[in-house]
């Protein structure tokens, strides 16, 4: 069953800028959807449309069957949102902020505090629980925002650049947490990011945005197949037979384009049978970053 449905969702701002153009996306329970794209691609606008902060100019969206423009407050009880502009109170401490937001979501003070302390520990903020938010670093604030979005045990998370400003270790920790939330608790995650390396690690499906349009959508495998039907291997060998379709890229280093992994033993066999010596063979699979840049360049070329 689809939890999130976007149906030709479009948003044109009063100045005439079309920020989101006919988006069609469906998300299922427990998916981690990587919504990728450069700044200004329309990712944040989409998150705001999905939470009722903006009204679509065309099309519609439903989350758990709720239209965010009609009953946003009902929807908000089920979702957790982290965006750059959704900050917390500077004059309150970390735990006071979490208790406040817990109470706003209908939790008792005791329950909010218990849940808040647990989240602070999981996000490595226990030491800063009684410090005012004004003394928090950017990374700490970002982690506290994530804790805030989880305080009411949401069923879907909208995370807009949740790891921006985090050091690599904290970012890794947050990503592991996001992955576990989806895997162990069935939480659906809508993750906007331009950190493609991290996205590749935790997302189950991707949507690539550019200038408000969804230029590609699917699993990593789908995207890779659409961009790179085959794959490359790198070889370090001596005495490579000349009939092999190798491209020399350095001293004893070669690159071979093949259709699938099944072709590798055949190439190795040919070199060995020709009396060559192999020092190294590795399959070069394109990363999400390679796919992303190829797709965006392709798009530019088509325009």
């Amino acid at each position: 069953m689809n939890i999130v449905t976007l149906n030709s969702l479009s948003k044109t701002y009063p100045g005439g800028k079309k920020a989101v153009d006919s988006l069609n996306i469906n998300l299922e329970k427990g998916e981690v959807f990587g919504f990728l794209g450069p700044n200004g691609a329309g990712k944040t606008t989409t998150v705001k449309l999905l939470n009722g902060m903006l009204s679509p100019t065309e099309g519609s969206c439903r989350i758990f069957g709720i239209d965010p423009t009609i009953a946003p407050e009902k929807l908000h009880a089920l979702v957790g949102v982290v965006t750059e502009h959704a900050q917390m109170y500077q004059n309150l401490t970390g735990i006071q902020n979490l208790v406040f937001y817990g109470s706003v979501f209908g939790l008792s003070t005791k329950e909010s505090e218990k849940r808040g302390l647990d989240l602070l520990e999981r996000l490595e903020l226990s030491d800063a629980r009684d410090k005012k938010l004004s003394s928090y670093s950017t990374g700490m604030r970002q982690r506290l925002s994530l804790a805030r979005s989880l305080i009411h045990r949401p069923q879907i998370l909208f995370l807009d650049e949740p790891t921006s400003g985090l050091d690599p270790e904290s970012a890794q920790n947050v990503h592991t947490m996001i992955r576990n939330l989806a895997k162990d608790h069935g939480i659906t995650v809508f993750l906007c990011t331009h950190q493609l390396r991290y996205a590749q690690e935790i997302c189950t499906r991707y949507g690539l945005m550019e200038n408000g349009r969804l230029i590609a959508e699917g699993t990593f495998h789908n995207l890779r197949s659409s961009v790179y039907p085959g794959m490359k291997i790198k070889l370090k060998a001596q005495g490579v037979p000349s009939d092999l379709p190798c491209r020399k890229i350095g001293n004893l280093a070669y690159e071979v384009e093949i259709e699938s992994e099944k072709d590798i033993p055949q190439i190795v066999r040919k070199i060995v049978e020709a009396g060559g010596e192999i020092y190294h063979v590795s399959a070069e699979l394109p990363t999400l970053e390679d796919i992303y840049f190829t797709l965006t360049r392709k798009k530019e070329g088509s325009i």
């Binding site: 939470n51 407050e73 965006t83 900050q87 917390m88 937001y101 706003v104």
Partner: peptide, 16 residues
């Protein structure tokens, strides 16, 4: 203070 958006994401209506 950029806390309004956070408050609007709560399960309370604008009127409330």
């Amino acid at each position: 203070k950029q806390t309004l958006e956070t408050l609007l994401y709560s399960p309370l209506s604008l009127k409330e």
